Simulated scan of single mutants.
Amino acid sequence: MQMFVAGEWVGAASGDTFVAESPATGEEIGAVPEGGREDAQRAINAANRAAESWARTTAFERAAAMHRVGDVIEERRDELAHTLTLDQGKPLRTEAYDEVEELVGYWRMAAEDAKRLEGRLANSFSPGKRVLLIRRPRGVVGVITPWNWPYTMPAELIAPALACGNTVVWTPASTTAVAAIALAGCVAEADLPPGVFNLVTGPGAIVGDEIARNPGTHGIGFIGSTETGRKVAEAAVGKALVLELGGNGPVVVLDDADLDQAAEATVTACFLCAGQSCTAGERLLVHRDVREAFVSRLARLVTERVVLGDPFADGTTLGPLNNAGVAVKMDAHVADAVERG
């Protein structure tokens, strides 16, 4: 496995690699380049060299390129779903294929939105003069993404950035770098000009930090924890920022709620992606008058539908946690709940 920089598949400048492992079995998936600041800088330089010519392409040319990426993803649907389950751990049939389908949608939406990105003719204060607002690409956009949705979260940032005429340098979470390389392969096959899209794998504290603070990036998109998001914002001070951070949202069930629908929604909120989501239902606030009825319904649905097992098995609906850090956090949450009764 390799990184993708300036239109070529390359290893880390240092030659270092790290081992990617399956969260379900612990088996070794493969060796991934452990990029560093030098690799991030090389990618940023490549993106800057490509920025001017990519920005000059028409919205319709860029839209066609985004659709080509979507076409490749559709062709590789089975391969991408399998890689996602192997690397991230989410169940193949109930979640992985759904994420791949959603991934296609992100690239196609970006393609069509690019065509509709307009300027405007604003009213002028001075007679005989016209004020024309034109939207221009920012330049190089750095993208830093998490491991819970290794395909759709990056696409949420990368596809619109490219469609609007920006070039991209992307670093994914290390625990789903294999899935990131698979997605990068789809972008590479779509034949964008060299340097327009770049992937650098490696530690977020090093590669992500370099991408965020390097003066060669002009905008930063980050999805991840609030703590890390603050660090990214500090490193990227003065740049355009898009930060989608973690949450601690409750599921609120009032006394007049449809309890069947509430229980259905709660199962999804709490168990989708094994609960590893910024929008997960981390707390249940239930009106005392319907508590017993709601708990009864919820317990039945969990027993019937939540099946922990091999994520490649057809009947599995709940896969493993993705990494050791989140497993420790989950143990602490469960212990706290038990202690509090």
Rank of each mutant, 00 (worst) to 15 (best):
G309A: 08
V141S: 03
N248M: 08
K231W: 05
N123Q: 14
G36W: 05
V302A: 10
P172D: 08
N214M: 03
G119E: 04
G249D: 12
H67N: 15
H333A: 07
K231G: 08
G195P: 00
E101Q: 10
K115Q: 11
A51H: 02
A20W: 14
A13G: 13
A6C: 09
R116P: 04
A240T: 13
F60D: 12
E28V: 14
G319T: 00
G224Q: 06
G195W: 04
A177G: 00
P320E: 01
T152I: 15
D256I: 01
D71H: 15
S126Q: 15
V169H: 13
E244F: 00
V290S: 06
A263W: 08
G319K: 00
G36K: 06
P172R: 11
L285C: 00
K231I: 09
S296K: 12
A212S: 08
F222C: 03
A46M: 01
D255G: 07
S277N: 12
V242F: 13
E99G: 05
R138G: 14
N323W: 12
I29R: 11
E34P: 14
D39Y: 02
A205I: 13
V253Q: 00
R288G: 03
A24G: 09
G30I: 11
G247R: 11
A161W: 00
V140D: 00
Y106K: 06
D98L: 12
M109E: 10
E234H: 15
D98E: 10
P154K: 05
T317K: 09
G221W: 13
E339D: 04
I73P: 09
V187G: 00
G224E: 09
G30T: 12
V307P: 11
A81D: 00
R136E: 09
G221F: 14
T25R: 11
F271Y: 12
F197M: 10
I206F: 03
V237K: 05
R76D: 12
H67V: 15
A40N: 03
I134N: 12
V200H: 12
I211P: 00
A63R: 08
R42G: 06
T175Y: 09
F294N: 08
E52L: 07
P150G: 11
A114K: 09
P320I: 02
Q276P: 07
V69K: 14
G229S: 09
S14I: 13
D310T: 07
R93D: 07
A337S: 02
L92I: 01
